[in-house]
Design a protein around this nucleic acid. Sequence first.
DNA 1: TATGAATGAGCATTCATTCAT
DNA 2: GATGAATGAATGCTCATTCAT
Lengths: 208, 208, 208, 208
Amino acid sequence: MMTDSDKTIDSPKQKRSMATRHRILAAGLELFAKDGYHHTSSKKIAAAAGVATGTFYNHFKDKKALLLALHRDHVIAVHEEIERFFNQSASIASPPDSRQMMRELVELILRTHQFGPELHRELHILSFTDDDFATSMRKERENSHGKLRQALLPFRNRIRVDDFETANLLVGMVVETVVHSIVMGISPLDADRLLPALTDMLHRYLFN
Amino acid sequence: MMTDSDKTIDSPKQKRSMATRHRILAAGLELFAKDGYHHTSSKKIAAAAGVATGTFYNHFKDKKALLLALHRDHVIAVHEEIERFFNQSASIASPPDSRQMMRELVELILRTHQFGPELHRELHILSFTDDDFATSMRKERENSHGKLRQALLPFRNRIRVDDFETANLLVGMVVETVVHSIVMGISPLDADRLLPALTDMLHRYLFN
Amino acid sequence: MMTDSDKTIDSPKQKRSMATRHRILAAGLELFAKDGYHHTSSKKIAAAAGVATGTFYNHFKDKKALLLALHRDHVIAVHEEIERFFNQSASIASPPDSRQMMRELVELILRTHQFGPELHRELHILSFTDDDFATSMRKERENSHGKLRQALLPFRNRIRVDDFETANLLVGMVVETVVHSIVMGISPLDADRLLPALTDMLHRYLFN
Amino acid sequence: MMTDSDKTIDSPKQKRSMATRHRILAAGLELFAKDGYHHTSSKKIAAAAGVATGTFYNHFKDKKALLLALHRDHVIAVHEEIERFFNQSASIASPPDSRQMMRELVELILRTHQFGPELHRELHILSFTDDDFATSMRKERENSHGKLRQALLPFRNRIRVDDFETANLLVGMVVETVVHSIVMGISPLDADRLLPALTDMLHRYLFN
DNA sequence: TATGAATGAGCATTCATTCAT
DNA sequence: GATGAATGAATGCTCATTCAT
């Protein structure tokens, strides 16, 4: 149970060494997503970032720390995206249309899924032996389900399911799965057919 | 991207060596599921199976071949389970009840996922960087979607979706995901609440 | 300095188990020559001989012992070939023609070179650590130079070199090299041009 | 039969790492020559060079690459030695004496073989099972025969052989063999007796 | 004797990480 | 801070050899 892998080395918050840090982050994200965490060596990341091997370790304690940093960035980005979504919805102040809400929700989650499945798998495994990862993952999960609940709550009296909590969870899982398969290009059908079907299914389930 | 890892070793299929093979398969299944493919060394598998390192390679060409063999065994087991299901359904010859069909379908898929669900995630990830895994997975997916179509077809004229193929795919994905999370104990809710909700959702979507 | 690797297991001189031994010898010779000693596993030899792995070790103490046995057979075969040559030459009892003698000598040595260079290299290395091999190799070398001397002796008074011993050695080396390159298919020219040139060279050197 | 082993590693050709590279080259040369390619492990080479195992692979793609590099270095050294020889001969501008030329040629080749003669045997053997080695060897052979032709050409009208090309090849092979045996200390006679005999033989053959 | 499954030391190679410059 | 050469433990895999049947 290591607990220090997430601490960024010292704090080179000054100067333009931040640029180097970002180049490493970008290279790491790209290579992890393309080749997978295990097939990406720190040497390759450094090379892709245009820095020396040692420079990598000046910015990140180890390879895991880079993954953790990427995850934190991801969580923050998702959080911001979702906040934007709620703020915008609130400002429109239109009479709530359940079908449109469903569609927008699906599209929102689609936008927030740039973080490859390989990375989540890796984080999942690392969670077993590293408390920082475990916490980071648990928080992200709780967060996203909370957000979903927040989105559905205004429609609660129109939602005709017996078990709201379970429905909430179920909808979250389903959307994530379909979005995943679209983002990763897994499904034999394209997003243009899959997304409307998904919206249909969820809408009928909740509001029919 | 090698493509010959699935070729079986000579053929020590006879005599007591089958026991060893099964011990290796069992050890591989457990370790791959617990620690992931990359964190499981062939040495560890051999040790867990109670055999020498070399014995592993007497039975499987390489580590990849073991995972592929596990997957093949899984696919075969699923296939047999599904055949049993269809045979039994046919023999009952009752007027088809869509809700009951949905419930039975979900339970069927649940039964077929008692076997190493983590392996699917692992294979899914490996598919991105290895053709053999990609092929093995694609075949299974095509197979299972075909079976699902076969189950839904008798209800086709009652199913009120625009795009039957997409609905078919969507239902397959969704059921698999939920079942996965139940079998793996991931979701914070239990099967008693999740399965009825899932059945509801699918039934409303297709037959509402 | 091991000294027991050459001892054939027990002595299965009886029955038809000799057939098995010969099949292993034949398989070993072919595979050693084709793929080299190091790329030929005892398992492959056994398979090529159509016997089980263990059977190999019932007949030969180890892989080295097989090589040693093949060498011994080779030496014996060469010896017999040479004896035939001398007996035949003697029986003809013609006035000795130096040019014809040279040609026949070259052809004789060509006939006796079926034992690949990989094997000689291997034997050479093994000689450093194994007395049996060292002895076996030394004997073969002495033997062949002795035979050459025996062939040249009748012409001694016609041979116009200052240093007969050195000439003897030189001729032996040269013939062996050229013959080697022909047998192994190394030289870019073929035997039809190389052998006459070799004969010319040696004849001019000794008898010009 | 891989064919990409000769590709050079990144390019650590700068700074003090060159020293390490040379230590590895020296260790490889010594061990390959003493024990043969297959009996020399990369670990042993690294240890002999006084570096860690991984350092070996920072400098050479694999074991094969080291041997190829050694061979390339050797070929270059030989080439330079030969160029020196020709330049010097040209500058002397004496009336060409065939016997002296023969002697100088033999001595030249002797000088070019101070470098790892055992490696040639090793490469020769490896040529049978590896294209990279075969190519490397073929090139050297073509090169050296070309050089020999260049040396003999001024004497062409005095050389009394029917088949000049074959004679050229034959002389090259013979000199190499004898020089080999001298450098390696194989022959029971010493260079003082062998070299004059060799010169005699070649001179009588070509110019008698 | 023959069998072939089992053995485990050994090898080539990788890669996360360190550290002297 | 940046560099990149050096490290060495660890991995996947091979193969000569043994031995229970």
